[in-house]
């Protein structure tokens, strides 16, 4: 395999595209888990968002209406998780598992009933998809060695949602660490009793976190079906919700490391696609399955505490019961 510069830029561009849904979903999980609501239903929410945004985009012919539908559907779906884990104080893991199954089944059943294409939604084109955006001066600087192609072919020419995802990272950092809401959100995940004593409603804070989580998974799903592909396919998230969860743990529940973890898992994914069947000079033929399993293996190794120790929010997964 010729590992030239053009191949490298194409892998990097692919990395950005593949990291985008991971960043949205991992940041979604960040808000939820920082507030003390563990959420393993990121996968299901992404599916729901991808499905309903594709449905709305194909019905209306507008990608923006698709995005809106994706966000509304994931908020509503996420609120079920909120209801189970905040109001009814159920087991959050059980609830998340349940929602993943409901999403996997529901999207296919509805897709089949409405379109009869084996769970696929109609092909989206034109304004029903998020097109690519050329950043200013992309053509002009393309001739500059090294930096030029990187700017023109990697950074420029991505979908709008890719830029939104990367802008979400500093925004999330700012919200979490520089606003009153963020401080309370982090506090409620560490010590809800203290927040309660301060006169702030624990359930309402957690519900808000669940809603933000819904918004961001809506973006993740919409990106997958309306920007990255042209329509919804059955089980199209293919475990990305779990990878996002892995990235979140890997990043120790911090926004900027989340971005790097997602980029790492994105580049692994891009390599798995590009290296299919190729043989490298030293290692020989790389097993695609190994690269695909690598994010999971890395997460397990990290969780085992061999590479630093993850410190999850202390009150995560524990329903809050007001003292009497």
């Amino acid at each position: 395999m010729d590992f030239d510069f053009a191949a490298l830029t194409s892998i990097l561009a692919l990395t950005l595209r593949l990291s985008t849904p991971l960043i949205f979903a991992a940041l979604a999980g960040l808000y939820s888990e920082r507030s003390g609501i563990f959420d393993i239903s990121l996968e299901g929410k992404m599916l729901i968002g991808a499905f309903f945004s594709a449905v709305a985009a194909s019905a209306s012919g507008s990608a923006w209406i698709g995005l809106l539908a994706g966000i509304v559907s994931t908020i509503l779906f996420g609120l079920v998780h909120g209801l189970a884990s905040i109001t009814y104080r159920g087991n959050q893991i059980v609830s998340g598992t349940a929602l993943n199954f409901v999403a996997a089944g529901l999207t296919v059943i509805l897709g089949q009933a409405w379109y009869g294409q084996g769970g696929r939604t109609p092909f989206l084109s034109g304004a029903a998809r998020f097109g690519t955006i050329d950043l200013p001066f992309a053509q002009e600087v393309a001739g500059v060695p090294v930096i030029g192609p990187l700017y023109a072919n990697v950074l420029s020419g991505q979908s709008l949602l890719v830029y939104v995802a990367f802008l979400m990272v500093p925004l999330t950092w700012w919200i979490l660490f520089r606003t009153r809401f963020g401080l309370r959100l982090r506090a409620v995940g560490e010590n809800p009793a203290a927040v309660d004593t301060a006169g702030v409603s624990v359930p309402w804070l957690r519900y808000r976190a669940v809603i933000i989580c819904g918004v961001l998974t809506g973006f993740a799903g919409t990106y997958m079906s309306v920007a990255q592909s042209a329509g919804f396919n059955r089980d199209m998230t293919a475990g990305r919700g779990y990878i996002a969860l892995a990235a979140l743990i890997f990043a120790n529940w911090k926004p900027v490391p989340v971005m790097f973890a997602c980029l790492l898992f994105g580049i692994l994914d891009a390599l798995a696609i590009r290296l299919q069947g190729a043989s490298l000079p030293i290692v020989g033929t790389v097993s695609v399955q190994f690269i695909q399993a690598l994010p999971y293996i890395l997460t397990v190794i990290l969780l085992a505490g061999f590479v630093g120790r993850p410190s999850p929010p202390k009150a995560g997964g524990v329903p809050y019961v007001k003292e009497r």
């Binding site: 159920g90 609830s95 996997a104 089944g105």
Partner: peptide, 17 residues
């Protein structure tokens, strides 16, 4: 896939809720 939904709903209502 209907079963997958039922399975999810059973886990939701018999477990989490």
């Amino acid at each position: 896939d209907m079963i997958v939904i039922i399975q999810g709903l059973v886990i939701l209502f018999a477990g989490a809720m």
